[in-house]
Design a protein around this nucleic acid. Sequence first.
DNA 1: GTCGCTGCAAAGTCTTTGCAGAGAG
DNA 2: CTCTCTGCAAAGACTTTGCAGCGAC
Lengths: 153, 153
Amino acid sequence: MNHRTLDYDKLLVDFKQLLKNNGLKFTIQREVILEMLYNCNEHLTPEALHHRIQEKHPELKTGIATVYRTLTLLEESEMVTSLSFGAQGKKYELGAKDHHDHIICTQCGSITEFVDEQIEQQQHKITQALGFLMKEHSMQIYGICHSCQKITP
Amino acid sequence: MNHRTLDYDKLLVDFKQLLKNNGLKFTIQREVILEMLYNCNEHLTPEALHHRIQEKHPELKTGIATVYRTLTLLEESEMVTSLSFGAQGKKYELGAKDHHDHIICTQCGSITEFVDEQIEQQQHKITQALGFLMKEHSMQIYGICHSCQKITP
DNA sequence: GTCGCTGCAAAGTCTTTGCAGAGAG
DNA sequence: CTCTCTGCAAAGACTTTGCAGCGAC
């Protein structure tokens, strides 16, 4: 269900534009991080991302600090968004995808995405009633996914 | 809007029962932490909570470690819930209150609570359709609150 | 009295920062 | 060439843990 409205080339162009606009440089490390976020159909912790990059591009010896710096940059530029839940730390995903909310299995940690138009509309109603200027929102539902229910009923 | 359905005495009884059931002891520090969570109509970080306790009960010299330990205990027992958003860390609130979601002002950091029956129902529908066993959920809406809009329009 | 609890300080995590050399523009 | 990036290691922030004495039951 990912990347329906997004192809990598477009993403890369946007990224390069973003860098240029801010007098920043396009480096291999930054590209690799973006690419990895694009290709991993998952929500990744900085550490997991770093690990995968080292596996796939060991020649770069990418440092964890660079991963953190790039994620911060991408998040500030709203190209990725972060999710933090419980003690499990912060996870990142590409944010240019369609907006969606998350259903998280507390057993296996898997994350399912969904969008519900009715909920979105309701949120607008509520904030308007309070005179609140809504910028964004995040919703997480926690529970046990279908597969894990079978294992431990 | 808080504590509509909850008075402190009841809370305290529940807490004592919880401790007894687990062979744990009722200490002044634990009571003070619970009381502070009850009286502060806010979502508190462990550090903020610790600071307020030291202000109000300096004679106890309550250590930050005890605050962390007690919050962990309370969270595991589902008497408090934690909220984590962005880089701002984890905040705790009494969880025995009515269920509610959060509207967070990114300007002043204030948190407004709300409940919407329609959203709740919709969440159940969605998870049921996925064969997911919903345990709990959290929803945060970010934006600029009414007061802050006046200051910087 | 017993056994859990507490404060303190030390040890862990996770994340950020300073720096000198490498590399993009 | 200039000025930003990077990796490394050191420093920070936040949280947890070990321990010896204290206190609830």
